[in-house]
Design a protein around this nucleic acid. Sequence first.
DNA 1: TTTATTTTTTAGAATATCCTAAAAATTTTT
DNA 2: AAAAATTTTTAGGATATTCTAAAAAATAAA
Lengths: 221, 221
Amino acid sequence: MYTSSEEDYLKAILKLSRKENGPVTTGALATELHTAAPSVTDMIRRLAEKRLATYERYHGVQLTDEGLRIATALVRRHRLWEVFLTEKLGFPWDAVHEVAEQLEHVQHPDLIERLDAFLGYPRFDPHGDPIPNAQGVWPERQRQLLSTVEVGVQVVIAGVDDHSVTFLQHLDRLGINLGTRIAVLERVEYDLSLYIHLVEQNRDLMLSDKAARSLFVEPIN
Amino acid sequence: MYTSSEEDYLKAILKLSRKENGPVTTGALATELHTAAPSVTDMIRRLAEKRLATYERYHGVQLTDEGLRIATALVRRHRLWEVFLTEKLGFPWDAVHEVAEQLEHVQHPDLIERLDAFLGYPRFDPHGDPIPNAQGVWPERQRQLLSTVEVGVQVVIAGVDDHSVTFLQHLDRLGINLGTRIAVLERVEYDLSLYIHLVEQNRDLMLSDKAARSLFVEPIN
DNA sequence: TTTATTTTTTAGAATATCCTAAAAATTTTT
DNA sequence: AAAAATTTTTAGGATATTCTAAAAAATAAA
């Protein structure tokens, strides 16, 4: 139906527009997609012609309802494939993005619904990111950044805001995973580092503020 | 590494060269790939430049060792994905080809080895076609066309030579699947139709010669 | 073995996607 | 509010893949 390239742009526009609301700029897209700005101008003009986005010269793009529908389906596909790769094929969480980036472009009427059923209808991917359902509805979850948690409170690791391989491997080395229960022991005033306690492993460790601002946690239910 | 298009050509050259030995003609490739002949000429010239095939003007193409290695890996990927789609996602055997055609182009160093392990190292795909191993070695199996089986002999359905949706659905309607045990009761002299007995279902039915020439069987082990 | 037919290649062009360099518009600074 | 800096678009071109029409080569027929 649409080319991989068009799909990549739609997904990028969705991603950026979920951060800041209002139109997405050419420059932001160029950075996100690692392309030159003129390539972006070309493509968003084409997307607008196909009624997947609205575009006004010098004022950025916005997805139409149809564009949003497609982009959301792509996020769904991407994240379901990531679940498959980690849960079924045993890939580490820092290695699934590249492959899912390719798998998400595979076109078939009910491939994804079958995959979803096979995986047991997961609501979050291996990085804790929400997986929209077949109707495009995103699951809700009350999560916050670890950096905002009060001292003394116990929480559970629920996701990462930085998906880089280096950060994910850093977490592995520290023994921090999705579902890991932690207690915030102390926030160092000087540089905002955190002393935390890993409950299951009965171990204390120190976390930089940068790391704490890249970790989502949720209350213990 | 290589584009989907290059991979499609390599796979087609392998397929055709396994039927007839010697170089594969431009016309045969054009038919196989549903493209115009000049497109084929262009591509095989490019493949030759990249040392994936040898090509002599007006005399067809042949894969080099490297081309053969890549094409074999593609067949391996295609067939493993087909096993995944039927065994794990519950797709009917007449619906997997199109999807596998896309999935086989997904590039990743150990995706296929992990998939192979997850599937339990299958040696044959849902249509009974052999799956080359990671070293490119094809599993052997003594199979013959049902049309060549002597009257009175019992055999097991081991594969199809015609992969068309209509034929596969025809077999479904008849209750014939991979692994179905049959006995050849009679060969009608007039049109070579076969009366066969489905052992498990304790049922007799008639099969056209055309169908019998599209079914592989193997001896009961 | 010359002629006719078929196959293959060359020539030239279209589309999708990307690029660099230069021009135009917008935003920021003074 | 004019000048400077930044961002975006236009212009023009490259590559990969495909196509149709015409020319060239190979094969088949007379």
